[in-house]
Nucleic acid binder design. Sequence first.
DNA 1: AGAGGAGGCCAACGGGCGTTGGCCTAGACT
DNA 2: AGTCTAGGCCAACGCCCGTTGGCCTCCTCT
Lengths: 194, 194
Amino acid sequence: MQPTDTASGGRPRRSDATRAAILEAARERFASDGYERATIRAIARDAGIDPSMVMRYYGNKEGLFAAASEFDLRLPDLAAVPREEAGAVLVGHFLERWEEDEALNALLRVGVTNPAGAERMRAVFQEQVAPAVAAVCPDPERAGARAALVVSQILGMAVSRYVLRFPPAAGMPRAEAVAWLAPTVQRYLTAESP
Amino acid sequence: MQPTDTASGGRPRRSDATRAAILEAARERFASDGYERATIRAIARDAGIDPSMVMRYYGNKEGLFAAASEFDLRLPDLAAVPREEAGAVLVGHFLERWEEDEALNALLRVGVTNPAGAERMRAVFQEQVAPAVAAVCPDPERAGARAALVVSQILGMAVSRYVLRFPPAAGMPRAEAVAWLAPTVQRYLTAESP
DNA sequence: AGAGGAGGCCAACGGGCGTTGGCCTAGACT
DNA sequence: AGTCTAGGCCAACGCCCGTTGGCCTCCTCT
């Protein structure tokens, strides 16, 4: 039996470079093409290896996607920043993260088309975003709704800017986007009522 | 040569019912599956006809999508409503529209995955949303940016609610969503600066 | 009543896909 | 130095896709 999991603790394998190359190529393809059009054959070609290697290391296409879309938003601890800056910090962090990590775009593209992708996005929302938001919102029982509102604004900007590329959104300097979105997110985080 | 265009002025053809059935099935499939996974074979099966009929009437898959995603947002004339209610009216209209017309979901799903879909969304943005926004915004030269901001919030809520189905967003009563989003959109429409 | 064309189905093609299994090779361990 | 196994490639299978061309049938117009 071949070990296929991602070496937690084991000593380095000779194939680690190949595994990494596959993962990198997969992230790029999933990000730019979405799940269905990103073919294993193309990913293997990008990584310079045979398609069957992908199967050997990641089982099947779904397993490859699961591995490629595993990532950490690295959300800041909002309780540690001045309360009135939480919105700006959060928006700035998200946009920066989106521009540096194409896995985010991959997840977004796949989440919209593929049930498994959507499920993973829901998991990220629940495990990473909701807790981060709960740390600053005044009413814990409404933290979920607040997190959803925050995500709706940030996700919408990401879609407009990085996926659909509406000219005014894609061309807007990041600082300007942050300046417009920050008060919105701030309100969703902390306002007593709409 | 067969006429394939959509009967502008010509008298009704015997095949109009079939054409309509194809279009309806296509909208449903594109909306729920996205471009790649919505197969012509499945659409034809839904419509109760042979796949080759789809080709005859719409040329190819891309032509079918173009026909299926042709639609009108029917945006209200924002100049006709009290200035301070423009945000609420716009948000309410969009969410209502989204729930009644699956073509919107189809366009969104396809736009995220498929270049042609993205191009069509940009066209809808430019031809329908931007002018509607320009009617109320104070500075015509920044109307494009304002429209992009408005769309980012509305699109984000649509994605969260109808596509990814984040529980707090999907379960939120429409009135509550409108109440939270309206001030945001109002600000994007009319505020002098962030 | 006859002709012609529109509406429809069937069968097939070529291609790309995910996936499998067998075989070779070279590095690591004893 | 010899063995063994992990790493890699090649070829193929079966499936489903978009698309095509031929053929039949029934409505409609003269």
